[in-house]
Structures are given as structure tokens and as C-alpha cells.
């Protein structure tokens, strides 16, 4: 910033002939080049660790153990990925990564779909109906916003044991959808829907369900898509909860399994397979974010403000 402006000290508005869409006055060509340079440096910092993980996943264990690691991918891509996906890795009980990916997928989808489903329904009730206790229920749900699962781990774990939910998908999913974020977002959005729409629907003889199905859901499509991406990533990247609630190796999520594969105490960590697992664990959420970028960015920035 500072050096950009120092170089740009002389630039005045009058010097700038070119004005394009989104460009502002008073940004000289030099400072624009510097901006590109800074951004490229930023991209390198942000993307390099991910790239390097991929590079490591294509080398043999021997290459990895002799630093520095080459900057270009090696020739073990197929071998390493095949062994991890279908062969199983010793330290985590021989569970193949495909099982881990499936577990994580179930968890992420369960959290995303489950949270959206219960939240849409309760926001619908709170915004479009008047009934005794409405505000009490709203506050009961709202307060849950304040306490992330990290804060109440031990008692929640006890509930899981009592209900027999250890090592089950329900145990992985249910406690993480017990929060108010999505309900509040839908409530906010529903409140912006004009009353005339409901009036019109009622004049036409539509009941609450018709209104919900034919008017409310189509209007909420963008919000649901954005929230789906955010919740999917939230579910996929969970750590503390799956760590506690899964004991058996075949129920682990891929993030937890990755942690179990690494040991610095003894030398037999199979780093090439660890790196493959890391790439496999990063890839699905990255793809979701990249492909749904437009919705996700809009949803993230608009809903969280």
C-alpha cells in the first residue's frame, strides 16, 4: 500500500484518460502493476501449501523423507492414489480412504440438508403464523446461536453415550444441526417477503402448504443454495465432534483419519499416503466452493452481515 502510493505520488485525476467499468479515478498504471504483483504474491502464499500437498502426494516416501521436496509432481500419482483409495492404510486399521470419504460425505450432506430442513420449517412457523408462545420459541431457538458445540462437549458426549449414538451417523450429524444460524437467516429473508403475496395467496384459496411449496420455496432457492454450500463445508471440515463421537476406525471422517495417520514420534508415518489423503480431504469442499462460487460468495457476504 505505502510503496504503491509512493510510486504514485505524482498521479492526479487529470492524467488518467482511461476510465473503465469498475475502475476509479486516480489509480495510475504503475500502482495497478504493483497491485497485480501483490495479488500474485498473495495467491502464491494462499495456494502454494495446497499445491505442495498435491506435489508431495505424487512422490515416493523416500523422496519425501529427503528434503527439499521437488517443486514439480513426481511419477507415483496412480500408485499412491490407488493404494490410498482402495488398499487401506495401516495405522488407521486398514480402512480405505473411500470409506472415509463416504462417511464424511454423509456427515456433510446430513448436516447441510438437515439444518436447512428444520430451519425452513421453524422460520416459516415463526414468520407466517401468530400463535401463543411464538416469541418464547423464537428465543429458545435464538439462544442456541450463542454456544458452539466446542463449549459443551463433555455433557453433549454424555447424551450421545446415553442415547447409544456413538459411532453412528446420527451421532455425527444431529448435535451439529442444533443451532439457530440457519433459522435466523431464513427468518430474516422471510420477513422481506411482502404481505401482499400472502394476501393474494389466501384470496386465491391457497393454504399454508400451497403457499410454502409454490411461493416460498421457489423464492428461497438462492438462499438455500448458498446456505447449502456454507453448511456442507462446515460439516466437511468438522474436527472436535467427530473426534469424540467416533471410536471405530471405519466410522472416522477423513479429517480425523488423517490426524491418526500422522506420527512424529516414530519414523514409519507413510507420508506419501498421508498427503494423498490430505488431497482427497481437501478436494471435495474446494470443488463445491469453486463450482458454486457465485452463490456461495453472494450468500456468505449477504447472509452473514
Amino acid at each position: 500500500m505505502a510503496e504503491a502510493a509512493a510510486v504514485n505520488g505524482k498521479s492526479t485525476a487529470a492524467k488518467l484518460g482511461r476510465r473503465e467499468e469498475g475502475n476509479m479515478l486516480g489509480v495510475s498504471r504503475t500502482s495497478r502493476y504493483i497491485a497485480h504483483a501483490v495479488l500474485i504474491l498473495g495467491v502464491l502464499i494462499v495456494a502454494f501449501p495446497i499445491y505442495y500437498t498435491f506435489v508431495a502426494s505424487t512422490h515416493s516416501l523416500q523422496t519425501i523423507l529427503r528434503p527439499p521436496l521437488p517443486l514439480l509432481p513426481g511419477d507415483r500419482f496412480f500408485e499412491n492414489y490407488y493404494q490410498t483409495l482402495f488398499g487401506g492404510v495401516g495405522r488407521i486399521g486398514g480402512v480405505p480412504a473411500s470409506t472415509l470419504l463416504f462417511n464424511t460425505l454423509v456427515m456433510a450432506l446430513g448436516i447441510a440438508i438437515g439444518k436447512i430442513a428444520i430451519s425452513v420449517l421453524s422460520a416459516f412457523a415463526i414468520v407466517f403464523f401468530r400463535f401463543p408462545g411464538r416469541m418464547v420459541f423464537f428465543w429458545i431457538i435464538f439462544i442456541t446461536l450463542m454456544l458452539p458445540v466446542e463449549v459443551r462437549i463433555l455433557p453433549t458426549y454424555k447424551v450421545m453415550v446415553d442415547l447409544g449414538l456413538i459411532d453412528t451417523y446420527a451421532g455425527l450429524i444431529l448435535p451439529l444441526i442444533a443451532s439457530a444460524t440457519a433459522t435466523l437467516l431464513f427468518r430474516q429473508f422471510f420477513l422481506t417477503i411482502p404481505g401482499e403475496l400472502i394476501e393474494a395467496a389466501r384470496v386465491d384459496g391457497a393454504g399454508p402448504w400451497r403457499f410454502f411449496k409454490d411461493i416460498l420455496m421457489p423464492l428461497s432457492k438462492t438462499n438455500i443454495a448458498a446456505l447449502f454450500v456454507i453448511m456442507f463445508i462446515y460439516g466437511w471440515t468438522q474436527y472436535l465432534w467427530p473426534l469424540l463421537v467416533t471410536n471405530s476406525n471405519s466410522m472416522n471422517t477423513i479429517v480425523i483419519a488423517l490426524r491418526k495417520m500422522i506420527s512424529f514420534a516414530d519414523a514409519d508415518t507413510q507420508w506419501h499416503l498421508v498427503m494423498v489423503t490430505a488431497v482427497l480431504a481437501m478436494l471435495p469442499p474446494i470443488l463445491v466452493v469453486l463450482f458454486m462460487q457465485r452463490w456461495f460468495v453472494k450468500g456468505l457476504v449477504e447472509t452473514e452481515k
Binding site: 495479488l39 498473495g42 495467491v43 494462499v46 495456494a47 501449501p49 495446497i50 505442495y52 500437498t53 508431495a56 463445508i233 466437511w236 471440515t237 468438522q238 474436527y239 479429517v255 488423517l258 490426524r259 500422522i262 507420508w271 498421508v274 498427503m275 490430505a278 480431504a281 481437501m282 469442499p285 474446494i286 463445491v288 466452493v289 469453486l290 462460487q293 460468495v297
Partner: peptide, 22 residues
């Protein structure tokens, strides 16, 4: 640039840690 910069959002904190540790 935006596309290249948003990747880490999708990465689990634990994995970010392990990658840096690596």
C-alpha cells in the same frame, strides 16, 4: 484472483495445520 484466493475457506482447520506442519 478471487477464485485463486478463496480455496483455503474450504479446507478444514486441522488439515491446514497438518499441511503447514508438513
Amino acid at each position: 484472483y478471487r477464485t485463486m484466493l478463496i480455496w483455503p475457506y474450504a479446507i478444514a482447520p486441522a488439515i491446514a495445520g497438518m499441511v503447514w506442519l508438513f
